[in-house]
Design a protein around this nucleic acid. Structure first.
Lengths: 257, 257
DNA sequence: CGCCTGGTTGAGAATCATCAACATCTGTGG
DNA sequence: CCACAGATGTTGATGATTCTCAACCAGGCG
């Protein structure tokens, strides 16, 4: 483990607004994600309590693991900056990407059941991660009903989202799958007050294909086709959604274009 | 011979062993599923408390709904006898089967997040269902830490299983998907001390295909092929796993047969 | 008895995977 | 700062698995 080669030097106290996104000294009350992340349902005093159990470490470099499949489960994690890929390795050694996580989103909840992680997670780019020890979160939930409820809701949401994804993989064409992923990322950007039309994909085409159950080549072709149709601007990982209505039409299958 | 599919006439009080599987007067402490269902982590006094919040109604007939998509979310449900299909209807009106539920299994957890059900659930055959009001379960979990933990685990398990299913749909051939489903049902039967080799599928071929992202025709062909290869005995819905090792080999992709 | 739903089987078509060649980007070291 | 190598992405040609369309069969119920 090499020490900080990362741009996280300014550890001095500064106003929240001026902080670097990767600053790991931030706390929940001044984190700009606290309206979409775990603190969502809590009052200031409660956030204070939550804050005390959260562990923040130096930012992770691209490719570094947050946790690995089969490791003992200790904590769930919140993304504060950057992005994360969740994936698992099947019995016969193939990788399956199970999700992408952006700031304000929680990962690692699939490890609770068996007390060891059912999947691995690694940073797609330089990322700051909040570690939330699960036994402490459980204790805190005993005392703060709204926290328990909110965490139930977060897990439920993951279930509902996975089931939507099932539908996507089970019923939809390559075009629909790619369109749906782009719309999902766009919506999540919007939630974080970022551009819904213009963003950089942190993951590779391979990861996208893996996640969507397609080959790299197919993903690449879909991007090219969407660009040719004037629906998308594609410059490598830089994406512009030019015609979001058409993209929605494609995703819905009202595929007239 | 599945005793669970039998009609539910004798509602009189009888020793637990002699009870009809659909008897809805049973309580958690004498339910023979209490080692795999929600009470799993509780002592007798705690089960007593859990039991008091659970609502049992008359058995449902085949086709009756337990809850419907978009309805207000009030409760999660445990299957006590019979079997249940979970499904959702997409924007463009297609049905997607999201899961099958057998005795001892919990459904409805996808409704917690948004406070209304993200999917529908209906009985595949005559079934008894325990209704567990979620607000009361939440309160109880505040007082019984092991219940909170167990419920977190149940939700986590659902997440992990959905992610496995993602892999199945994303990477596997028709043969592998069907094999995996049969092995899953076999294992769940075994957990309930029923035959792992011999069982009746409660769902239609259409439902199987829908769940696995295949057409009815493909499912039918796979069943026929497996039968021809001597891996399976298929008599309509009555299934015999003749060569479970080969079936595992198929499911794993070490597909030499 | 015959209808209707559910299941099976067959032939042809389509989408996406595979294989292969080439292009572009990244980052590392000279 | 440039050059180069490996990784990543694009495009094309071919082929396989699965879908689609269609006919037929079986069983349950009025």
């Amino acid at each position: 483990m090499s020490s900080e080669a990362a741009p996280a030097q300014n550890l001095i106290q500064t106003p929240a607004a001026a902080r670097c996104a990767h600053d790991f000294q931030v706390n929940c009350n001044n984190c700009r994600l606290n309206t979409i992340c775990l603190p969502l349902a809590l009052d200031i005093a409660q956030v204070e309590q939550l804050d005390r159990i959260i562990q923040r470490s130096r930012p992770l470099q691209k490719g570094e693991h947050i946790y690995r499949q089969d490791e003992d489960f200790q904590s769930v994690y919140a993304v504060r900056s950057g992005s994360v890929k969740g994936y698992s390795i099947t019995d016969n050694g193939q990788e399956q990407v199970t999700g992408f996580y952006f700031p304000g989103e929680i990962l690692g909840m699939d490890g609770i059941a068996k007390n060891h992680h059912a999947s691995s997670a690694r940073a797609l780019e330089t990322s700051s991660i909040c570690e939330i020890p699960f036994d402490k979160l459980g204790e805190l939930s005993q005392r703060i009903p709204s926290l328990q409820k909110h965490f139930f809701q977060l897990m439920s949401q993951e279930i509902a989202e996975d089931q939507q994804l099932l539908t996507l993989l089970s019923k939809n064409t390559a075009d629909q799958r790619v369109a749906a992923l782009l719309l999902s990322i766009s919506a999540r950007n919007k939630r974080r007050k970022l551009s819904a039309a213009n963003f950089r994909l942190p993951m590779s085409r391979t990861d996208i294909g893996n996640y969507l159950g397609l080959t790299v080549e197919t993903v690449s072709r879909v991007f090219s086709r969407f660009q040719k149709l004037g629906v998308l601007g594609v410059d490598n990982k830089e994406i512009t959604i030019i015609d979001i209505e058409s993209l929605r039409a494609v995703a819905d299958g009202s595929d007239i274009v």
